[in-house]
Design a protein around this nucleic acid. Sequence first.
RNA 1: GCGGGCGUGGCGGAAUUGGCAGACGCGCUGGUUUUAGGUACCAGUUCUUCGGAGUGUGGGUUCGAGUCCCUCCGCCCGCACCA
Length: 822
Amino acid sequence: MARPFDVTAVEAKWQTRWFDEGTYEVDNDDPRERFFALCMYPYPSGAAHMGHVRNYTFGDLVVRYQTMRGKAVLSPIGFDSFGLPAENAAIKAGSHPRPFTDERMKELSSSLSRLGAVYDHRREVFSHDPAYMKWSQAIFLAFWKAGLAYRAEAPVNWCPGCATVLANEQVHPDGTCDRSGDLVIRKNLEQWFFRITDYAEELLNDLDALDWPERVKTMQRNWIGRSEGVEFDLPLAFDTRRALRVFTTRPDTGFGVTYAVIAPEHPLLEELTTDEEREQVNELVTRAKSASELERTASSDAGIGLEKRGAFTGSFVINPFTKDQVPVYVADYVLGTYGTGAIMAVPAEDERDFAFATAYGLPIVRTIEPPDGFEGGAYSGDGVHINSGFLDGLDVPTAKAKAAEYLAGHANGVTKVNYRLRDWLVSRQRFWGCPIPIVYCDTHGIVPVPEDQLPIVAPDDVTMVKSGQSPLATHEGFRNTTCPVCGGPARREADTMDTFTDSSWYYLRFADPFTPGVAFDPVQAAKWMPVDQYIGGIEHAILHLLYARFYLKALVDIGMAPGLPREPFRRLFTQGMIRLDGTKMSKSKGNQIAPEKYYETVGADSLRLFHLFAGPPADDVDWTDQTEEIIDGCARFLDRVYRLSDYDEVNFHETSDDGDLEIRKAVHRAIATVTDCFERWGYNIAVADLMQLFNTVSKAARADHGIERATLDEAIDTMVKLLAPMAPHVTAEIWERRLPDEPSVHQQPWPIADPELVMQDTVTMVVQINGKVRSRIEIALNTSEAEAEALALSDRTIVEALGGASVKRVVARPPRLVNIIV
RNA sequence: GCGGGCGUGGCGGAAUUGGCAGACGCGCUGGUUUUAGGUACCAGUUCUUCGGAGUGUGGGUUCGAGUCCCUCCGCCCGCACCA
């Protein structure tokens, strides 16, 4: 395609200038209003892919737009540079992950520059930088000292493919690993945890005030999984001084408890199991323990309760409502890690209990009258209580309160809130992560590494193997150390931290990487925090976004971030993904379209414009046969703007006339609509509005009648400014050619619409007959209803169309329309 | 199964509060320029039996519905034994 300018040269020229001149460097004491714009910490996987391009196009637009709005914009970049892909590649190549990672970082960095994205490069951060690791480790130790980090043995998720344990958040519902797709198995291991559950309530409540997509907030709410209920005792039939403690959200259904169920891991199981039942109980427990999560949940995948697996323990407990003895079963549908690990079962009002009761022939007693015509097993809705003694006749909420009161007096009942959220498992048996700064001494046990010895950096002379433990575990030079307390022989922790710890506080380092001796100075960081606009993919809806929220709250509480807000990201935007042939475009699927080729042909500006124009930013984009042509169309539009700005084929007239006034109005209306679109993420519409404005201006300027020079000057200068955040290179070039003595377009203030020109004094009012458009009348904006009605009824076209029909009613809604009903 | 979102030309998509459906772009058709192709520019492009009809289907509210309510169909996303 023949272009009116040398795209490659122009883009390179401006990229160099922005970088060399530090155009987007910003100081912490900048007096302007502040704006913190941030794209999610990218994993350096090499040159930017199309998803990056989309993400960083939006991010860069925000940075440039807010800058033109007169704000001091903090635009940092860094790299989430620890992680498995680099380690796996190093194992394969028999090398070290560091050079591999450094290379990928360089590639990503340069391809972001090539896109035209601008940053304060002085603030660059990457996870494996010892200067950053030092503080990642210091935060770990601060958590430990505050009791937020602890070591415990627990059944954990082990991924054979990744050869490490995983957090609950990294395991899919079907029991496979988030990263490798391998089936995760259960193992009992001693591991490090962060006490994120201490913050469950706050993490849940604070979501309400965040300007985040509702979808993301819902996902987090579900993940945290708050449920309110009552914990109480079911006395053991053979020894009523002791009891099985259970948790329920439905105390009101207590009269319908016909059995109890305990988890295979429950500590009382052994005691409750009678000799006659021992064999089948053991069989069930063995199976449940060895089963993977997938196998354990498989029965429900086939349809609710098709195959509840359980066994009678031989023991009974007493229902505190009915005083009846009910059997205790062990079943794998009750989880040892939630609530008390035991439940009261109410088959009539709980689907899972119903399925189990049906399979094992247990009695079902309804305690709530289902609605007429109700078909099916369990009824969990509201209704009138029956068969429920003192609860009979009550609705569910009332009965709940009354039952809870009863349990408090008769069964040690206490109201309780349970969460689905578990503590965050942070140990990883891998090499390429931030080492956990802990030493184990035979005398002093767990000893933190003193801060002046941080960072603990993994050695370079390791043999990278995939063995189920980090190469650090067998590296004698690293492993053997001395106890910081007694100086005796000690061993270093060989595990590294989950890489999500690195991305949980990087935004604070961005805000202040300058103050020596601290991770960040809270006073400096407070100048920028919280992030005003965070941009990233929906795939981080739970993991990263929950962890980062926890980190900041914890840092504030333990005194590392006093005075900072408790939420890191005020506004979140999640952009859609790019799909090719119906699936997400990704490296692992091998269906990527590389951006480089577009840089070389149409240029970065055109590719950016395409991503902005393709559709609503939050929606997925399908890469199709048509895409190339749309990108060409975007390039064509930029070329037209360039040519018009050169006054190519333009006719001028001397003094301004009505035509010029119309152009000025169109220009100012576009300022208003484009600005509005920028504020509400309607970039696709902003591009459309600019194209429309261009068409109007271009047509007028090239017509024989021509245009006044001042009108065209204003139109073009404004268009270039409005386009500048979208297509930064070509607009900078046009601006410089037109106004070589002025500061760059990117330093210009964002245009402000003149209300006089935006306001239309006359508008086209539609006249309908029976809801069908029959005529259009130009009217004044402030026309009254009566005037509008009179104008409509006397309009020649309308009189003809009516043909003397009797008018039943007239609905006048000036200035939009009049509807005549006949 | 539960929760949420979405169905508009050949295609991507516009249409703040119910008020001119299809902005803008792609593609397509015709034309001007050009040795030709490409580029550039101009005109047209929902369907139509030219009365009208039309925003997945059927109903409802309203003077008026793409927009609000109900039914069904289809697609996408999240959750899925958490008591």
